[in-house]
Design a protein around this nucleic acid. Structure first.
Length: 137
DNA sequence: GCCAACGTTGGC
DNA sequence: GCCAACGTTGGC
């Protein structure tokens, strides 16, 4: 199983929205590298749900419910989307500041390339962040 | 609100 | 196909 991190601005689409909506498509990604990452995702992979701009924290865990397929909002047909299903909310959000202050998490893509909206997360990073968020993993 | 980092666009 | 200019993202 692989681990990922997806980003959303809570003013546009928040974790609460995701929980209320249940399984939804993760559409609108228009970045080549993020697209490659989504194409690599397998059903059953896990992804952190991160709030950018406001909150600046990992707030919950999603499961990839459906592997990459064409994003209907992309007329050119170049970009893809996956389906995500909310699994579990963190007991406490893990903020960017905490991640930066934690040895071993400083190399997370979130820190290194904060603009990438769909990122890989290593197993070690996954475990550490889950623990900080109050979840077993 | 500012600005650094990154992507994209378009003239050549 | 290069690269300067511009636009966007997102942390601070």
């Amino acid at each position: 199983m692989k681990y990922w991190l997806v980003k959303s601005e809570p003013s546009v689409w928040s974790w609460d929205d995701q929980v209320k909506a249940g399984t939804t498509d993760w559409s609108g990604v228009r970045n080549p590298q993020a697209t490659i990452n989504m194409k690599t995702m397998k059903k059953g992979d896990r992804a952190f749900f991160y709030h950018s701009n406001e909150g600046l924290a990992v707030v919950g865990i999603c499961e990839i419910a459906k592997e990459a397929y064409p994003d209907p909002s992309d007329k050119a047909g170049k970009f893809v989307q996956v389906d995500v299903k909310p699994l579990e909310a963190f007991k406490q959000p893990v903020t960017m500041a905490e991640i930066k202050a934690t040895p071993g998490l400083k190399d997370m893509v979130l820190v290194k390339n904060s603009r990438l909206s769909v990122q890989p997360v290593t197993a070690a990073e996954w475990k550490a962040v889950c623990k900080m968020g109050g979840l077993k993993s």
